[in-house]
Amino acid sequence: MESAILIAENVSASYRKNTVLHNVNFKVNQGTLTGIIGPNGAGKSTLIKTLLDLHPRLSGSVTFFQQPFKKAKKRIGYVPQRGSVDWDFPTNALDVVTMGLYGEIGWFKFPSRKHKEKAYEALKKVGMADYADRQISQLSGGQQQRIFLARALVQNADLYFMDEPLAGVDAQTERAIMFILQELKRNGKTVMVVHHDLQTVADYFDHVLLLNRTVIGHGKTEEIFTKENIGKTYGGNMRWLIGEEEKNVVPSYH
């Protein structure tokens, strides 16, 4: 189990003038569920995009399963932020989930019934089977997030990156999504999740990656997710809730 399947060494990235990430180093082991935590503008989304070649990498190297990204692509699933696509696009939920199988179907071929059934199974898993024929524009935010998750599930990847899958969803959807992530982990998959709610970190993730332009701390949640480290990550810009427990820490801009 203790084998590093993702190694990032000395990674840096920027937008025009501003360096967003510099000197990012970490290793991720198989079967872990990692929360990527950091303030707004810390480069969390950029980190994921840089790892997946969606954003240019200025320096450093990234290997997945001891291979460069291009060769390991098929084993990696990505759930982008919900706001990154146009939900007005005329298609239905089942169709979006089927998109996760396009790599498997092969380019310039049409999905078969078997593929549609597979997509439907994934919809069932995220509790959206009743919405298969629903227009994606008519789904709520939480339902759209579940569709994205289902699309990632059908890819049957070994390593998943999820960019704020819990943003703007209700409590029930949050529980449903977390249940699926835990299940992925139990099946030996590795999951990395950009997460915003500090209160739930300790409950949800066995590992944390504290990020603010560079890695502030990375490792087992109980060792790394300490008041001191969080303070370092958020630049001391915190207020402490009664109880002084680590998990009751929230950023002051909430």
Binding site: P80, G103, F108, P111
Partner: peptide, 19 residues
Amino acid sequence: AYKEWKIFLFDPQFAKGIG
């Protein structure tokens, strides 16, 4: 390339991710 157009227009980032 009907299905390729669809994913290219709907979610280019995901499309890139799957190759």
